[in-house]
Design a protein around this nucleic acid. Structure first.
Lengths: 159, 159
DNA sequence: GGCCCTGTTGAGACATGGTCTCAACTGTGC
DNA sequence: GCACAGTTGAGACCATGTCTCAACAGGGCC
C-alpha cells in the first residue's frame, strides 16, 4: 500500500470487503475478487485496467460489474475518482475522509494530502467572489521522491 | 462576458481571433465563426454544445473542426478545459495567465481566481511529501451570488 | 426441500465524447 | 496559373461508460 494520509499518520484502510459489508452490500464472489484486485494495486488504476486484469486472471467478472463496483466504492469513499491531465479517469484506494491526491506522473504512485491549507484558500475565494462554494477538487501531479532519486519504475501516462 | 480575474481587476481578454492570429494560425471562416460563437458564450460550455449550436446556426462547421479549434485555443490559453463533477468536460473563455475557476452549479457562470494562496499550499505539500509538483488543478463548484440571491437562471448539470 | 423475492450478475447493445483518416478545398507566395 | 502547405468536413473508428435484460444466487419463510 502506497497511499498514506499526511497529517493523520500511517493508518491502514479498512479492507474494501469490510467497507462493502458495513454499508449493507452483499459480499458476492465478483465483489471479493475485485476487492482483492484493487487492494493489490499500487497507485492509481483505470476501470479498463481492472477489467483487463480481471479477464486475464479469468475471474469471470464482467465490465458492467467492474464499473458498478467502482461506483459503489467511490460513493462509500473507499476509492476516489481522479481526472488525470490526459483526460483519462482513474481511481485510487483512499481514506474515506475528505482529502486530495498528489500523483506521480512517472510510476503512478499516489499519496493523499489533507486540505488544511486549502480550506483557507477556499474560504478566501468564497469571500472575494461572493460564491457559496459547495465542492472543491484539487489534484497535484509531479514526480514522487523515488522517481526523483532516479529509481527505475514503469512510466504511467499521466501528463 | 462573465469571467473576471480576481486580483488583476477587470481586464478584457484579447479577442479569440487575435489570439489565433498572433500564434500564426490562419483566420479561416470556420475559425472566425467558432470564435464568435465562443465569445458570445457565458460561463462554461461543452464541445458538443458548440457542435450543436454551430449546426443550428448552419455555420457549416464540422465536429472535428470544433474539437481541433478548442484544442488549439486551450493550448494557446484562450480557453481552459474543466472537468465537471459529473465527469463531463467543459471549456471556459479565460485569461492566458495561470489561474483556476469557480463554477456555478446552477447557471453555469464561471469566475476566474488567481492562485496566490494556493501556491503556498502546493509548496507545503511538496515539502511534506517530497514530491516535485509540476502541475496542479483546482476547481471549485457552488452557487454564484446571483443564484444565491434567488435570481432565476437556467440549471446547468454541474453537480 | 420448495418457493418467492430481492439483489446481483454477465453479455451485449447503446450513448457519449473524442480522435483519426482522407480526399477536397483554400489561401499564399511565386 | 501553379505548387504547396494548411485547413476543411464527413464519416469511420475508438475508448469509456451506461443501460437493459434475462438468468442466477441466496436468504427468509412455509
Amino acid at each position: 500500500m502506497v497511499s498514506t494520509v499526511l497529517g493523520s499518520g500511517a493508518m491502514d484502510n479498512p479492507p474494501i470487503v469490510t467497507v462493502l459489508d458495513r454499508a449493507g452490500y452483499r459480499l458476492t464472489e465478483p465483489r471479493r475478487s475485485l476487492a482483492a484486485l484493487i487492494a493489490g494495486r499500487e497507485g492509481h488504476f483505470t476501470a479498463t485496467e481492472l477489467v483487463t486484469e480481471a479477464r486475464a486472471r479469468r475471474l469471470g467478472v464482467g465490465r458492467a460489474t467492474v464499473f458498478r463496483t467502482l461506483d459503489m466504492l467511490a460513493e462509500l469513499g473507499a476509492v476516489e475518482r481522479l481526472d488525470l491531465p490526459s483526460g483519462e479517469h482513474a481511481y485510487v484506494v483512499c481514506e474515506p475522509a475528505h482529502h486530495h491526491h498528489v500523483v506521480c506522473s512517472r510510476c503512478g504512485r499516489s499519496d493523499e494530502i489533507d486540505d488544511t491549507g486549502l480550506r483557507k484558500v477556499v474560504r478566501e475565494v468564497a469571500r472575494r467572489t461572493g460564491y457559496r462554494v459547495d465542492e472543491h477538487r484539487l489534484e497535484l501531479f509531479g514526480l514522487c521522491p523515488a522517481c526523483l532519486a532516479g529509481q527505475p519504475g514503469p512510466t504511467r501516462g499521466v501528463a
